[in-house]
Design a protein around this nucleic acid. Structure first.
Lengths: 206, 206, 206, 206
DNA sequence: GATGAATGAGTATTCATTCAT
DNA sequence: CATGAATGAATACTCATTCAT
């Protein structure tokens, strides 16, 4: 059976297997043996293609980030103003999107590992920072185009991303608590409050 | 609870030790030996006071919930309307509050374990549900008092709590990304958008 | 079965088990499982009493050094001059002494590990240095007492110890090559050449 | 041996790679992958040219023995008596000779493996026996030529070789303990004590 | 000849849990 | 209550060897 089916394929196969196992058992709970079994590979192969278990996690994190980036691109595709803002939110929260419970559980597990493992922390922070900056960019464009009024786009972007992140966390842990289909609309509404307000003041518009 | 006082002390001592260790190493990474060492106790004592490691986690989760409930009580104390809403938010996000990085890291670790261990999941869900319902209650009171207009208090409560939860997660993982002191004000602003709007429509109304 | 049979006893028990196994299989070949089995203990106990396999080796090295030091003491016991010199040699090479093939094999294995593991190297060097310095001391005393003439006791001590060490190595590897009982007398004779000569010249003098 | 020339080159390339790696990591610590990397070859090639890892060690041992035999030949070249004796010693211990730390470390590692692996033990014993017998031959010639007086050339040869071997061992493990340049002179002096003495008695000459 | 992916047994080490004292 | 030694299963990782290409 030893052939040459593109090492890159094997790596992806293994990262996806980690995703499947980790969603149910967490990162520590995902043993190499189980990951290999889930990938349909011999246990030894895992460490042939990855130097360490952490490396698989980093690869998976890269995958998750890549998929999300691609979904984002599809949802934004040249739009601006409220359309872009809503696109960003929908790309993260709309049904059929990240609603994949496996991806959600993995993401939350990644955030936990980010606390424990410095290298994972750096990678995780990089991914999050990229999305938040992209969001901040959208807001700044909207402000320049007079579509938005926003005293502090950095704060606004962070807040909107926090709301999204919070829904991820709740969806992964207490899924039934979230009224069906309410996430994206609610965040859209909250986002508006941040990009149409004249100051840090009370609320929305006069 | 009603045992010899020493016992209750010991249990708390151990739960706090788990908190300290878990903040740095996560739940799986916190060994009983290390927990015992952090508590200044003999390893054998841990299993004398707790049936299993999971039990310590559940106790810690209870502690975290209790502390938060008490802080909430202090921040609310009879207020209503916007004051109550802001109190709820501040109790979670105001400086000096849950900003304790140890507590944040523990909370995120708990959310991860909630996915893996059914029993932890139930306990975690209970805690979250209680806070969300309390928030929902505040909103309903505000609506009845004509202070708020909110078509769906359940959705609003969930969204506001998601934003808080998201800030917890970001604070624990990518702390430096959050502009200092921006969390509570931003969530207040977002919350307003949810309790003054007439529909799921565009945003706040005149 | 969990009692308190003096942890120090357990440590010694394990170090002796390593000695038995290592004599046949070398250090790398001595698995923790096998060491535990040879000691009649559960595998987990080994790492309860020793932080790492290397630690067991260091303990064993300490044991070997200690036994040899004690044998040396017995063989020297106040003697000086040629008696002391012969005593040093006999303590190392006389029959029934280090002729224990198990000890010899361990010693050679230790010397190999001393090359690979820095910490073992330091410990091994310390042990060897101590014996060589003791020998050098004996020679210096003999010189001061006019019993010896030796231009460079450091060189002489090193050479004599090298000869001893060489017999260890040969005994452990090509035992049958050494004529029975020839080691100690031969080294005694060689040693004389180093402590009675006036210079680096030809040999012994009339 | 009579295969395609490339094959023989490859075998030597691999044996030399083992030498390099083994000097730092020992025999067990030298993985086939690493050996291949050190040789600049694909891992699979190693087992194409050698049936097993042990076979590489045996080849390396043969190389070491061969090199030493050649050096010996150069140092002896027709000499006899003390010149031959000194030549034998210098061939082993003179500066620039086996002082190559890589070779020394390998030699000590080989001696360790000789204890563990019967086949290596036989090969190692063969190599040592050959050198000792050659030395014994030199001494016998010297005796017949009336240059030496030596009651037991076998014992003398063994003793001299032990001293050489001991210096190898010390040089590989506690190099700094040996006074620079003292090895060969010291062994020459010790050797004299064995080939000029009238009996096994006290010391040198009457 | 040469390659490098594949295999699966083996390794040190960690750990929750138990229990004699 | 308290101790800390004991247990044995589990884990990440390594490695000699094989073999399809």
């Amino acid at each position: 059976m030893p052939q040459k089916p593109r090492t890159e394929d094997r790596r992806d196969q293994i990262a996806r297997a980690l995703q499947r196992v980790m969603a149910r058992k967490g990162y520590e709970g995902a043993s190499i043996q189980e990951i290999a079994a889930a990938a349909g590979l011999a246990p030894g192969l895992v460490h042939y293609h990855y130097r360490s278990k952490q490396d698989i996690l980093l690869a998976l994190l890269g995958n998750l980030a890549g998929w999300q980036a691609r979904r984002l691109e599809a949802h934004l595709s040249g739009s601006s103003g409220f359309a872009a803002l809503d696109g960003f939110i929908d790309a993260h929260l709309a049904l059929g999107g990240s609603a994949d419970p496996e991806v959600l559980a993995c993401w939350v597990a990644c955030s936990s590992e980010a606390i424990r493992q410095e290298e994972v922390g750096r990678a995780f922070a990089g991914v999050v920072a990229r999305f938040v900056q992209q969001l901040e960019g959208l807001i700044r464009e909207g402000v320049q185009a007079r579509a938005f009024r926003c005293p502090d786009p950095e704060v606004a972007a962070c807040a909107i991303y926090a709301a999204i992140q919070g829904y991820f966390s709740l969806a992964a842990t207490v899924h039934s608590l979230i009224p069906k289909g309410s996430a994206a609309p609610a965040v859209r509404k909250m986002a508006r409050a941040l990009v149409v307000s004249p100051g840090t003041g009370e609320g929305a518009t006069p």
